[in-house]
Amino acid sequence: MAKLVRKLTKSNEFYLLLVIIAVSIVIQLRSGQFFSANNLVDLANAMVVPGIFAVGAFMVLVAGGIDVSFPALASLSVYATTRVLVDAGYTGGVWLPFLMVIVVGAILGAFNGLFTSRFVVPVLIITLGTASVFSGVMQGVFKSVQIPNLPQGMSDFGRSTLFVATNPESGLTSNMPVAFLILVAVVAVAFVVMRYTTFGRGLYAIGGDESAAARAGFKVRKIKFWLFVIVGIIASLAGLVRTSMMDQMHPTNLLGMELMVIAAVVLGGASITGGTGTLTGTMLGTLLIVIVQNSMILVGIPTFWQGFALGTLILVGTGISAVQLTRSRKRAPALVQG
């Protein structure tokens, strides 16, 4: 028991959870609306897209890289899919769009993977480049414009709900989208991959010490390549969900989301230098950011303070882990040994 407590108080997730609870209580006290059924459903709804993205960003971060190309990648693969299907007058179910974004996402991810596994260039730099290539292709080759009418299957999927929550006081209703299940599924699969497969443990190993991983017998290049294929698929899924839920394809809608997503993952305890972090932390980090974004309105704080609040959160969040790190280093002083 004592061991469990010690483990808890050492973990980043524990503190994050405390912060989330504290923030929730403050909002509840100020607005009386936080713990209403429809607000909770709204939060879950808002979690879906950043949550799915965060899983991908988390996996790359664990392996020691920062991927900034995922919104551009998702935009391109979803745009291409939507364009082709709309032009062909597709009226079937949502399975085909899903299949197509998965294939296109995998190919675009492989493009990232090819570069990151072959060249000793930081992932950040490579994906800055590929992000521009992806949006360039979308705007140049596909002459991207807004597509107001999606294929029927996608629209239906975007509108389909699991259940409807009603606020008894205000009478407001919120829909729990079916897409939430996609987030659940992605997180569940990623959890198993990260914890119970040699591939997942390989990502942690590479993030910890890449040359040690190679010496241990991990096929580092192969792992990195497939990592980006998987992340391409995950990002494209998020893109398709977003587009379906908006019921229109807006080519630049996702761009710019990368910083908020990476911030959520880092807030969740993943180290920028790789090798550490958990999916639980990633989800908590995303939840905290979503709560702050969604609930400031409830408390009556003007929306332009959102950026300020997010920035402060990130500084405090990463600051705490930095302090913890320095403390553990102090215990083993570097300058004076012995």
Partner: peptide
Amino acid sequence: YQDFSVFPNL
């Protein structure tokens, strides 16, 4: 190896 090739994060 001289650096022991261990994973410090694991």
